[in-house]
Amino acid sequence: MKLADKPAHLRKTLDAVMVKDDLDALVAMSPENFLHLAGVNVVSQRMIRERLAIVIYVKGRDPFLVISSIVANTVRRDSWVRDIVVWTEHQKTPVQTLGEELRSRGLDGGRIGLEMHYLAAAYHDELKGAVPNVNWEDCELLLNRSRMVKTPDEVELMRRNAIAAERAIWAGFMFAREGTTERQIADRMVTSLYEVGGDYSPFMSLAAGQHTREHHAVAGDYRIAAGDTVAVDMVGTFAGYYSDYARMAIVGEPSAVQSKAWRAVVEVQSQVMRDAVPGVTAETLAANANRYTRELGYELDINLVGHSLGIGLHEYPPLTMGCTEPLVEDMTMCIEILIQEPTLGRFHIEDLVAVGDPGGARRLTTYFDTSDLYRITL
């Protein structure tokens, strides 16, 4: 899905931020921010860190890219940025080429925002030597806030990805029967993720019975039995955008204790969704989730009750105590509630929502009816 509305949105919002912060340009090079700012998922950069793909937004001017010749054809085809400078691997470094371009474009002085958290120290030193008169400013928070806001096309892309990922989890639960192993169910879900259009699953945690007590449990050879809960937390990617959802099932019929615990996590999540409106801070949602959970007789098992989701998995802001960032309209974020029932283990739900409606966040993961535990046939 092409994000037709994103280039103009970026130009408008980033120009405004550069004027406000008195910056002449912004330089970013992580795979996540290159996808965000240039529209291309350079997959090989995640494995070959020295293959930097660099995007430069200049105040009041068109952006430009500095990329390896290895990925040049892909970038030319897919990026909305048309000014592309190519460097040849093993002949030049990407930072050497960036320095040359900054000098030739009159950007070898002034204040430039730099994505500090990704750039290796050696490259940072090389960059300072290449353009010694530039005052480099850390723009990590600026870029994080830029990625918080999704365009309508991005929200629709995230919604489609969410439904596809839910279908993959559903396929695994439908496949499962009493006696199926955890690993077999997890494998079926991951295979289904590919079948519905996912790129890959970088994280899959699936556990049954007492194994659910373990955070981020790895699926093993345990065979599910009557009365077991099955908990899954699966991450997928679709064209560089993440999906991240948690679901639970029961083998047969749930006990009263299991039903009560599941109703509790669903109710707490629903209340937090209603609270998630523009202007509310991340830590307010975390505090509310803790209070709602205690009112139902449980304790949250982790200090994170959600996070923004998009090109990154745990994007800014985290919904945790101490984070005072307010929610803004057109955010997409996961709301995640996890408790430990003392005798039975983990009860966990995670859904994607869009922020903006005055009555609360709008749920985008709508394939499952989560009001009750999914029943796995005996």
Rank of each mutant, 00 (worst) to 15 (best):
T377Q: 12
A207L: 06
P254C: 08
R274G: 05
P202N: 06
N161D: 09
F368Q: 03
G209A: 07
E50P: 11
I84Y: 01
G198C: 01
R103I: 12
E267H: 13
V134S: 04
Y57M: 07
V280P: 03
L37E: 03
G322K: 09
F173T: 00
M47V: 14
L3S: 06
L304K: 10
G110D: 02
D221H: 14
S308F: 13
V66C: 02
R46N: 13
V27G: 04
E295S: 12
L157E: 09
A354L: 13
N133F: 10
I335H: 10
A16S: 11
A226P: 14
A231K: 13
Q258F: 00
T324F: 12
M273H: 00
K2W: 12
I54K: 01
S259E: 15
T237H: 05
T332S: 11
L304W: 13
D15A: 04
W136A: 05
C334L: 15
I84R: 00
L373R: 05
N33W: 10
S308K: 15
E253T: 11
R247N: 07
I70V: 14
A264Y: 08
E154D: 07
G39T: 00
H124G: 14
G106N: 07
H215F: 15
A282I: 00
P132N: 03
A162L: 03
A176W: 08
W170L: 14
V353L: 04
V58W: 04
W262K: 04
Q269H: 08
Q271N: 12
T365Q: 08
Q91H: 15
S243W: 08
M158T: 04
Y245A: 14
E156F: 09
G172D: 05
H348V: 07
D138Q: 05
T365P: 07
R61A: 10
E154F: 05
R294E: 11
V190C: 09
G172S: 00
L364N: 07
D62Y: 12
G306V: 07
R375Q: 10
A164L: 08
M1E: 01
I163W: 04
V40M: 02
L23Y: 04
D199W: 04
M321G: 15
V81R: 06
S243N: 08
D301A: 15
S192T: 09
S255Q: 08
P318E: 13
A354E: 11
Q210C: 11
V353Q: 06
A16T: 06
L378S: 12
T74W: 09
Y245D: 12
D78Y: 09
M248E: 06
E154K: 00
